[in-house]
Design a protein around this nucleic acid. Structure first.
Lengths: 355, 355
DNA sequence: ACATTTCACGCAAACGGTTTCGTGTTGATA
DNA sequence: TATCAACACGAAACCGTTTGCGTGAAATGT
């Protein structure tokens, strides 16, 4: 039996265990509901009782149990974030944006990393969908995009759990989305290279069917064609995510007289730039580079990389805002009025292109 | 009234809402407890009933509600991670390790970013401590370290919530810890520079009282002294976290004939290396560099940076393992048998030092 | 002095599970 | 045929809160 005396609510283990309404009620010889109401300053409860209860609660640092409240309200105040990777500049900035907005609005964030795997994505979502979260923010794993299987997303939305997709999205799922204007910004980036007088502009992209890569490729293609340059598959190099064969890159550069490169991420750009420089070429004089993702690598590379800033922070904030609005809009499902928010990407010019 | 017919458990909103034990019980005209037991394959329940219940549950994709289970068992299967920053290579690798281990053991991870702020750290911990998580893994914010106020940590441990500190730890809190052998590895790094014949070895470190920086400085100092080199404050440059004044760095190099640099992080190293190279010096011929944190910058810099790998992944895994063991060891608090696990850091030699 | 408010509080259900214990029915046994 | 164990299931408590409603006592009105 615990005895609650001021300054002494250590139990036999020397622990100040969390106190519950029941404890307060027992100690003050009132009912649990009285305590609950007193703490909420209900008009139903008398002055004296309220003061007594509040003082006691304060003394013992009473804090309501989140889990119990979640069960009662069917609101966890948690949002689930499922992303393909965490050790990745773009995703961490998006996450930072999400966390910032969510926290400011009383929500916590549970992160699961799909590791680009379809199965992990499914498992993680199923775990979280059983009451742990009020909504999802996610970006599709590579495997999911390749597979084209979005049933796990559909199930979640059919259950009435709000979902916001960002960056790597799909049209097959009806939900809110946040993306950047990939095609346009890729067009602008390519156009900048063209205006700098470059004639053989390569595109270095990923393997597989990444939504964003495709859109960027489309912008690149359109820019070349619009400006009367030859668009040929020879100018496009696809690289795997891991275990990049440097030889193949050098071969690619050797076989085409490339004078500018647009890469769909910063890693490819930095890597190629380094190889090319070792080969004796000068950046940007001989070859200029533009990448995507204004990450830490872009800023500190030599030369600093001209790049497309995707504004991940902003993206995360917008995604969180859309999700939380959905969650809190009690008006039963604004039936099919899903929005797609477009974050304007911007080209940041640095040393890897001519001013 | 919902009617449960195969292939039709959509409600009036067109939503396949999650089904509960109560629904199954009502539909099958048995009690809730029977359903619960049947789904657990209890011996108490007859064959027919079990089959009937299980089939129904499968058909309607019944999954128990995590929140209800958490309330019952007083176990959330969530762990709280509080870190100073997320857009930061080292912390993301640690996080990856935590997430990997936790997920493999059925735990989810709630992340809160303290943003190097004491107040945010406190608020985040208080939010999570009210039942949302079973334990904490954290690394102290800069402000907390400066302030030296660890009451929020002590309160948590006094409540019986397990806590594991990593990297930025403090001796003032009794809990499990995971750190690297900072002093020794800094000693080894400095020693390597000395053995390469360097005479004027600088230390570039942070302002303020970072536990790890101090320990690294200590290793550096000891190496110099042990090898008969002059140890002088002139050789130490302290930089702020943000808004680094490049002039002051160049002044520092100009005023001392430095031929090697040990930096307490990779950013400082990359930055200084870049400045020095612009100044016309050759790395590593004129000046060699060693950094801490084997991040993406180190690998892709020119020249690639020799650096101390802190093995964040491993650190995260170990921290998660220690925490989960604590959580699941029902044996009431192995009173004061806290461990401090040391992850062996390793020096990775690359191009910024002579082979 | 009696009827009616008002006040201050407690009861109990609910959220969605788990689990202990009790009980009616059945079949076997003496 | 009376006894009893085995079987199959239900009732209820519990985790910690919230909240609608009921109720005894005091305060008010007539």
């Amino acid at each position: 039996m615990l005895i609650y005396l001021p300054g002494n609510h250590f139990n036999i283990f020397g622990l100040k265990k969390k106190i519950t309404l029941k404890h307060i009620a027992r100690e003050l010889e009132v009912s649990i509901s009285t305590v609950s109401k007193a703490l909420k300053n209900s008009e139903e409860i008398g002055r004296d009782t309220k003061e007594k209860v509040q003082a006691f609660a304060k003394l013992y640092n009473y804090k309501p149990n989140n889990i119990a409240i979640s069960l009662k309200n069917k609101r966890t105040k948690n949002i689930g974030v499922v992303i393909p990777a965490i050790v990745h500049y773009f995703f961490t900035t998006v996450f930072r944006g999400i966390e910032k907005y969510a926290n400011a609005h009383g929500y916590n964030v549970i992160v699961c990393v799909s590791d680009e795997s379809f199965d992990k994505e499914v498992i993680n979502m199923e775990m979280l969908a059983n009451g742990s979260i009020d909504g999802f923010i996610m970006s599709l794993s590579a495997e999911t995009q390749q597979k084209g299987d979005f049933n796990h997303l559909k199930e979640v939305t059919e259950q009435g759990i709000p979902l916001v997709l960002f960056d790597r999205v799909t049209e097959e799922v009806a939900c809110d989305k946040v993306i950047i204007n990939d095609t346009e910004i890729a067009y602008q980036a390519a156009e900048k290279l063209i205006k700098d007088g470059r004639k053989k502009i390569a595109l270095i992209t990923t393997y597989g069917y990444f939504n964003v890569s495709q859109k960027r490729a489309e912008g690149y293609r359109k820019a070349l064609i619009d400006h009367g340059l030859d668009y040929t598959e020879d100018l496009i190099l696809q690289l795997p995510y891991r275990e990049i064969n440097e030889e193949s890159i050098l071969d690619f550069f050797d076989n085409n007289q490339i004078d500018a490169v647009l890469c769909v991420n910063e890693l490819f750009a930095i890597l190629c730039m380094k190889l090319i420089q070792k080969r004796g070429f000068h950046v940007p004089k001989d070859i200029s580079f533009i990448g995507f993702t204004d990450g830490i690598l872009s800023r500190y590379a030599s030369p600093a990389l001209t790049t497309v800033a995707q504004h991940g922070d902003r993206m995360g904030e917008v995604a969180a805002q859309m999700l939380i609005e959905r969650i809190e809009s009690d008006i039963d499902e604004d039936e099919e009025t899903f929005r797609t928010e477009i974050i304007g990407a911007t080209l940041i010019e640095r040393e890897s292109t001519c001013n």
